[in-house]
Amino acid sequence: MAVDQNLKIELGKQGIFVTTIEELYNWGRRSSVWPMQFGLACCAIEMIATTMARYDLARFGAEVFRPSPRQADLMIVSGTVTKKMAPQVVRLYNQMAEPRYVIAMGACAISGGPFKQGYNVLKGIDRYIPVDVHIPGCPPRPEALIQAFMTLQKKIDGQPLTGEGRPRHLDAEAQGEFAVPEQGEHDLEPTSNKGVWPVPITIR
């Protein structure tokens, strides 16, 4: 039972703090997101800058970059995902702890960027794993990453504990394993994961 927002503010002025388990739980979750220490290209430099003193990602509780996917619940895909690297990225995503989130950082990670027409670059990591926040930019400034992180925090905050739209770890039905693509003759096989990325219909 959610408390009326105005009533809550009014009570807050009187020194009475009202909350729900959902709010407390999500507050804890969004304030302790542990990203994976994992940089792919030039965007990673901006990601490193974001964690340093000037931009200070620690303000959001996300300074602990874990070097193991087992201890991380946020993957920042920072940079160009080549087709050689894509299987590794998907495998790492599979190894991360639930509930896991993905920020696709930069033009390459969201779409292939300037290398989109090339033969060796994946045209967006969202073909294989579900991406929560996309940030455009080449590379995006640290402020953009912080913005993306705050967007992710808002998303975590808005997730109910039960019913539709609950976080993946509370949902027994949520997909846990995402198929790792393999190197085919001409391209990765499959070229995208079913259910993750709708293949656009080309109109000629």
């Binding site: 590794q88 790492l92 190894q95 504990l161 770890h169 949902d171 027994a172 846990g176 394993e177």
Partner: peptide
């Protein structure tokens, strides 16, 4: 509330992708 979702990839020993 948090049903585990183990799978072969997640349970793999090596964790470098």
């Amino acid at each position: 509330y948090s049903p585990p979702k183990p799978n072969a990839i997640k349970n793999a020993i090596y964790e470098c992708g």
